[in-house]
């Protein structure tokens, strides 16, 4: 019950922080949607100019657009760097807010410290869920807009296999985003700084991306233990490839999936439990 209180209070407070919500979960889908519509309008304008000059027998027929496939593709692109970076704003606000506004002392007396940390993590997970759903909504609206712009007809094929792939892809994206944001929890708890909560995960993420590019120089292949344990971004890509199937999945070494799960789990649980351990012994009389 006390954990539920902590989650409810954190979530309610985050909902009042309109600026953080705008930048963390609304900005990327809305700007992405606007850019997609603008780009398609531009392309359609250029194509129309050419098409009108072609003889009628050479003009291509307008095809159909599968919204189910569009949804699946959107799920595969959810955990993109832009969304990760902007979700960090909301996460930093939740994780470091009580240090910045010196409000820990108002809430620590009536709840246990593990509950307070888990309450924050719970609120951020709900924010991530909302952000991912908004991204999906924007992708579907973008697909519909694209179809309308290019005069496509619409179909919606979403069989059991597609639904399973979609569900796994969505879950994987959720885990990857939460894993990344938990680095902000650790940074905020140790440094008591909102800036650190914002920049430490970014720096770690960028460093991991660069180092992952150089991994083949060390003889490490995608799916090997070192890449999976050191680079959670690669672990996410491996699992995504296994869900999607195709060429990349075919060249992965045996057991790559389990190693990827282990890597993501390590990078999720380690920051969380380190933050919890630190927080339990932290002097909160001076935020």
């Amino acid at each position: 019950m006390m954990l539920a209180d902590a989650i409810r209070a954190e979530t309610w407070r985050l909902l009042q922080n309109r600026t953080a919500l705008l930048w963390s979960i609304v900005f990327v889908p809305v700007v992405g949607l606007a850019a997609s519509i603008a780009g398609n309008l531009f392309i359609d304008d250029k194509i129309s100019a050419v098409r009108d000059r072609l003889p009628s027998q050479l003009r291509l027929e307008r095809g159909t657009l599968d919204l189910g496939q569009a949804l699946l593709e959107a799920a595969g692109n959810l955990a993109n760097p832009a969304l990760l970076a902007f979700l960090l704003i909301g996460a930093a606000s939740v994780f470091a807010g009580d240090y910045r506004w010196e409000t820990w002392r108002l809430i620590t007396a009536r709840n246990s410290r593990p509950n307070l940390i888990m309450g924050k993590a719970g609120a951020v997970k709900l924010m991530v869920l909302a952000g991912l759903l908004l991204m999906l909504a924007a992708a579907v609206i973008g697909a519909v807009a694209k179809g309308l712009i290019f005069g496509n007809s619409f179909v919606f094929h979403f069989g059991a296999e597609t639904a399973q792939s979609f569900g796994l892809m969505f879950l994987l994206a959720f885990v990857r985003v939460v894993q990344f944001l938990l680095l902000a929890l650790l940074a905020a708890t140790v440094t008591r700084s909102m800036l650190a909560a914002l920049f430490v995960p970014l720096v770690i993420g960028v460093a991991q991306a660069f180092l992952a590019k150089g991994a083949p120089l060390l003889g490490w292949r995608m799916g090997d233990w070192p890449t999976m344990l050191l680079f959670p971004g690669d672990a996410y890509e491996v699992l995504k490839a296994l869900i999607q199937g195709g060429m990349m999945a075919a060249v992965l070494p045996d057991g790559a999936g389990w190693r990827a799960v282990a890597g993501l789990a390590l990078w999720s649980f380690a920051p969380f439990f380190m933050a919890l351990w630190w927080f339990r012994r932290q002097d909160l009389s001076k935020e």
Binding site: D5, A6, A9, W12, R13, R110
Partner: peptide
Amino acid sequence: TPRYPPYLTARQALRWLALAHG
């Protein structure tokens, strides 16, 4: 002197604390 998240109103601050206290 207590401090509160600056984006909250006085009523919201108490509401938030009430939720936090169950």
